[in-house]
């Protein structure tokens, strides 16, 4: 059980840095994204890079911090027993997966450009979701 939550924490931290990198770009602190093709900037400068007026990258930063915090919390001995950390992780990972799918759809069908960092983040979310489901299955049913 611990291994799964450790994996969740490591993946969430990796995702956090990807989201931070994109958010720093949005803030103008990074001149050019290390992208090569320019597609990353097309995606990041598109109207779809905001969700209800909030930078998608910032949503990612907050989301990954929450997932990281929850995974670390779940590693503490007193939270090893209760089922709620695993359930909450599964719900949040599910929301993150749906949001990631929506964003990937926007890239493919609306913006017509693919940002490699968004793809990396989507892969991280898929892995987080997989681990969260494994954790959920390991929770003894009441």
């Amino acid at each position: 059980m611990n291994r799964g939550r450790m994996g969740l924490a490591v993946l969430s931290l990796a995702g956090l840095f990807i989201a931070l990198y994109l958010w720093l770009y949005k803030l103008g602190a990074i001149g050019t994204l290390a992208c090569g093709t320019g597609s990353c900037e097309t995606v990041q400068l598109s109207p779809q890079s905001k969700f209800f007026g909030i930078d998608v990258a910032l949503i990612g930063v907050v989301g990954y911090i929450v997932l990281l915090g929850l995974a670390l919390l779940g590693l503490q001995p007193r939270f090893a027993g209760p089922a709620w950390p695993a359930r909450l992780l599964a719900v949040l990972a599910g929301i993150a997966l749906l949001f990631s799918l929506y964003l990937t759809g926007l890239e493919l069908f609306v913006i017509h450009a693919i940002c490699r960092y968004c793809v990396a983040s989507a892969v991280v979310i898929v892995l987080i979701f997989g681990l969260a489901m494994r954790e959920l299955r390991a929770v003894p049913s009441v």
Binding site: N2, V10, A14, L16, F17, L24, G31, A34
Partner: peptide
Amino acid sequence: SGMNRFYLLLGAIALAGIAALVYQVKRPKG
């Protein structure tokens, strides 16, 4: 000790990530 190793790994990843971001912010741009 397994947890300690895990926290060390997590700390190392965090440091590497922070260093990479600082490099990106500080590097000459454009």
